[in-house]
Write a protein that binds this DNA or RNA. Structure first.
Lengths: 225, 225
DNA sequence: CTAACAATCAATTAATTACTTGATTGACTG
DNA sequence: CAGTCAATCAAGTAATTAATTGATTGTTAG
């Protein structure tokens, strides 16, 4: 009779299992994929295009994420749709960022480079933004690509890509506060948008976290189509 | 004039920074070191002995942890003492465990092997244990090595290694609940102790987390010497 | 200053992991 | 059922990372 053998080095085997999860987070390509999956579930080909990975490479990275339990997949006709397993994955991603920002001077240097050395103001909390939306006292900008905006965005947010932002500047009111958001903790679009807006004298801040975190808080999200 | 160059691929560079933190967690040897550092700060030689790594290898792993911001070091005479940077590191370690336990059947299999296939009871929360200690209605066992017990333990806990446990069995009262704890989320001593105790008809459960988590809650810890 | 000790560095080898290419599988479509 | 499309697999190469060994640095003690 064949049984699953019990581990003869349980401690080493357990550590190996935990390390497997960490290894899944240990490649930039997979962090990029997780960021995408945090926006909306997608098939392998779409993910490959979004991230610039080749199809086979993308598939292999996704399988790595699935083995580690960070993503799951289901078949839908010819396509295999991947999504994040649960919010624990988002939490893990954000903790990585927090630790890196606290302890790696290099991270500050990169973020500062995004704003031409200006000091960026503190981000707006999601609670605060929700309150200001209720009062109508804020312009909300979603700085992600059109398709991601379409698959879910904060109610009332206007979709403006960075390329479009310049042409929008004259129509923005310097008296109204602007809050910009993007994909979440790893995304730099909102940083860049806020830097551009402030350079032009507008009162702009970033939202803390991005659309995935807003959704995860259980707040309302609007879909198109 | 030389300046720090601003990043020309800020997104890729940021992801590389976050992946660096994850990579630090991606080796069993380093997880073992982090578990040790969670008990008490130590020099490189002591850590090498505790983990079974060679001195040079241990030093290199510790430097990897330091680069990632998970550990920090200070010089004390001839010795270099390493410690965890902050509680974020503990949180990261525990999240790895949670994700692995939720999604990796292999983890269940290993943990079940520790208890001869018995179902283990739910662990006791730290709040509950604190309350029971106040009432005097519980025997607390610290199942770690003597030196780790000496460097900090839960008030009133008795230090019993697994090797000593058998000889203690006759002196334990089946009517009093026993709570066992060890190093924390990656440690299996408490699992094994509880399994042994229950096999002998005693009413034993594990503490949720270990000494580092208890300390992190801001609860009292006793030192010897 | 010299000896002793703790830790790190440098260089090599072994082992893993990432990416590419081309073949294969599975499921729908006409 | 053949054709098509999406994804995976398999095999090979390139790149990274881990562990070992021996030399070197910094610090204290005598």
């Amino acid at each position: 009779m064949l049984e699953f053998p019990i581990s003869i080095r349980p401690k080493a085997d357990l550590l190996e299992e935990y390390a497997l999860v960490a290894r899944a987070l240990a490649a930039p390509a997979r962090l990029m994929l997780l960021e995408q999956l945090a926006q909306v579930e997608r098939g392998v080909e779409a993910l490959a295009e979004k991230t610039g990975l080749t199809l086979a490479n993308c598939s292999q990275h996704l399988q790595h994420l699935r083995r580690a339990g960070l993503a799951t997949s289901r078949r839908d006709g010819k396509a295999v749709i991947y999504r994040l397993t649960d919010a624990k994955t988002l939490t893990l991603m954000d903790l990585l960022r927090v630790v890196a920002e606290r302890n790696r001077a290099q991270v500050d240097r990169i973020l500062r480079g995004l704003t031409d050395g200006q000091d960026a103001p503190e981000p707006v909390s999601r609670d605060e933004l929700a309150a200001r939306i209720r009062d109508g006292a804020v312009t909300v900008l979603d700085v992600r690509p059109k398709d991601e905006y379409a698959s879910g965005h904060i109610p009332g947010a206007h979709n403006v890509t960075l390329a479009e932002l310049e042409s929008l500047l004259p129509r923005l009111d310097p008296a109204t506060e602007i809050v910009a958001y993007c994909r979440g903790p790893y995304c730099i679009y909102a940083h860049q948008a806020v830097a551009t807006l402030r350079r032009h004298g507008l009162n702009a801040r970033r939202l803390e976290g991005g659309l995935p975190e807003w959704r995860e808080d259980g707040r309302q999200v609007v879909r198109i189509g």
